[in-house]
Amino acid sequence: MSDPEDEYGDSTLAAEYVLRLLDPSEHASFEERLKDDPQLRRLVHDWEAHFAPIAGEIAPVAPPPRAKQSINAALHGEAKPSRAWSWGWFTGFGSLAAAAVAAFLIFAPILNPPDLTPSFQAELAAPDGSLVVTAGVIPATHEIVLDRVVGAAPPGRVLELWLIAEGATAPVSLGLLAAEGTTRIVVPDDIAPGVRTGTIALSDEPPGGSPTGAPTGTILATGTFVDL
């Protein structure tokens, strides 16, 4: 399998990775690239989301009760099902109703997770107001949630987020903003403590982000966080 990858591009390669079609060495080198290539991770993410609905055609099959017991035994050291209130909570319903109720209960908190609201926020604004991005930080998950309010990356460029921690000598890349919609960036544990008191900045960079690890384009907007 020595076809040149270029002809089909990273998107096709990402699809092959998601489908588990790459041979072991290709798979390993793709995973190596994934570690520091947010663009590539995005492609993988998109393909996972595209393919998962294929499983929609699979009919559910109830696993035997011992499966749940084994899982609980493995996780919580329980030989018997837990005494928690929720066991059998759904069993009184018809199966369809139960699935609907359970799905609602499960997905509703995700849509509006009470404990995952940002606790501090920054507004990154260009001096002339041509670009405004809000950034909220969720400390529990070390996530920065970014929304573009005004403006966008210049054509053919992407926006990259940087952190300049208090006292730091150089900016650290936090990741790229999606071309559209909300971007969620998880800040690595070792630099997360510096976010609250540091400065964050957006620069315009070539697709895929700065090739050097330092901003190469114009710093378009900066901001600092305030508590909400």
């Binding site: 559910p60 109830a62 499960i106």
Partner: peptide
């Protein structure tokens, strides 16, 4: 754990499938 249990009840049949 109760959230986990409810998640299991709601999704295990699909995932087992």
């Amino acid at each position: 754990r109760s959230a986990f249990s409810a998640l299991y009840d709601a999704t295990s049949a699909k995932l087992f499938g």
